[in-house]
Design a protein around this nucleic acid. Structure first.
Length: 366
RNA sequence: GCGGCCUUAGCUCAAUGGGCAGAGCACCAGGUUGUGGCCCUGGGGGUUAUGGGUUCAAGUCCCAUAGGUCGCC
């Protein structure tokens, strides 16, 4: 079943190292989950994912419900079997996509109506239907439908969204029945500390096995995001895992872990790879740049990933400029290896009681 | 050999009846945080094939040359 154990805590911050046990294996935390929206981390085979050290993968309810459909995936044995990944899986509720991808959407007390970004057809999600879809998909960790406000929303708008999110969380909680799945509660509240605290207290009161923090890293300044974590996390129980949705970058990982976050998911490393950018300790390397045209060095001299041990920046730049799939694939592999390796080091530093020093090392990198 | 049409940015092409030579793509450089490989924002680029002529002013009108293309002996 689902269980979270804490193995070490940092004496100088809220950071902790632990393990989330799921029916499909253990997730050492802190952990970064690569995003596989359409039941695939773009260009990566499950074998690749294992090789770069991924333990948890996030897929998306919205996309999979529209195509190929949850019933289809259920008939084919569930998401794990369907995509060939037998490790832990998390599905996002689709709340975010309804608000970010769909051009037309109408919100009411019972749910949300929107147009499919695929064929324009009218679709309907309710808290209950989203839980039902995710039970058909069968991920180990699932998310309730929530209301995401635009970045420029004011206090009143955020309060209304938050209260609706809370009512939907209650409905999701009573609807969910599969005992082998952990349904997390999602905290919202925009950039308002009192709303964040109120949301955290309310959601924590519903006895979810884990919690997610949403609506951050949507354009607000980083100090604001950190302040929102500080307003939220003290109200969540220490004994349960906390996931930060949609984040992010190495310094954000360190800062969020220091405030008590256990898991992350983010499209950035894989998306940046598709745009020709490689992540390194020295910052982002835009491999499209002409300066790499005849650079024989790997992306990073000290990186032990398959890409860095076999290919030059010049070759990768050529692949990117030529629009070759392999370029995307090799850079994605490196970016994931880099972030997952970084997360291992963060975990190790917590276990060994020297996490404070790693804040110095990574906290200011790109 | 004769006649028509064409030649403008790296590429494909615009530019009222002479009035500051532009676009798309490419190139160069930024951006991208619960994923459309998309997209967005800037930037550098020209002796308008070559040589003459007319005009206050020529990518535009006239002559010659070169290259391309189509048609006809």
């Amino acid at each position: 079943m689902f269980e979270f154990t804490v193995e070490a805590t940092d004496p100088y911050s809220a950071a902790r190292a632990g393990t989330i046990h799921t029916p499909h294996g253990a997730i050492p935390t802190p952990c970064f989950a690569p995003v596989g929206t359409q039941a695939t981390v773009k260009t990566m085979t499950p074998r690749d994912l294992r090789e770069v050290g991924a333990t948890l993968v996030l897929a998306n309810t919205y996309h999979l419900a529209l195509r190929p459909g949850a019933e289809t995936i259920a008939r084919l044995g569930g998401l794990h079997v369907f995509m060939g990944w037998d490790g832990p899986l998390m599905t996002d509720s689709g709340g975010f996509q309804v608000f970010s991808l769909s051009s037309l959407r109408a919100l009411d007390e019972d749910g949300v109506t929107f147009r499919s970004h695929l064929d324009g057809s009218l679709q309907r999600f309710t808290p209950e239907s989203v839980i039902q879809i995710q039970e058909q998909l069968g991920a180990d960790i699932i998310m309730p439908l929530d209301v995401c406000t635009p970045a420029d929303s004011d206090y009143t708008e955020n309060r209304r969204a938050l209260e609706l999110t809370h009512r939907w969380a209650e409905r999701s909680h009573v609807t969910h029945y599969r005992p082998d799945q952990a349904l997390y509660g999602i905290v919202q509240g925009g950039v308002f500390a009192d709303l964040r605290a109120e949301s955290a207290r309310f959601i924590a009161g519903l006895d979810f096995p884990g919690f997610a923090i949403g609506g951050l890293s949507v354009g607000e300044p980083r100090p604001v995001m950190y302040a929102m974590l500080e307003a939220t996390i003290p109200h969540l129980p220490d004994a349960k895992p906390r996931h930060l949705l949609g984040v992010g970058t190495p310094p954000e990982f360190v800062q969020a872990v220091a405030r008590g976050i256990d898991t992350f998911d983010c499209v950035l490393p894989t998306r940046e790879a598709r745009h020709g950018a490689a992540l390194t300790h020295q910052g982002r390397l835009n491999l499209r740049n002409a300066q790499f045209a005849e650079d024989p060095r790997p992306i990073a001299e000290d990186c032990e990933c398959y890409t860095c041990s076999h290919f030059s920046r010049a070759y990768l730049r050529h692949l990117v400029k030529a629009g070759e799939i392999l370029g995307i694939s090799l850079i994605t592999l490196h970016n994931l290896y880099y972030l997952l390796d970084l997360m291992c080091k963060i975990r190790q530093s917590i276990v060994e009681g020297r996490f404070a020093a790693s804040i110095e090392q990574v906290g200011h990198a790109a």
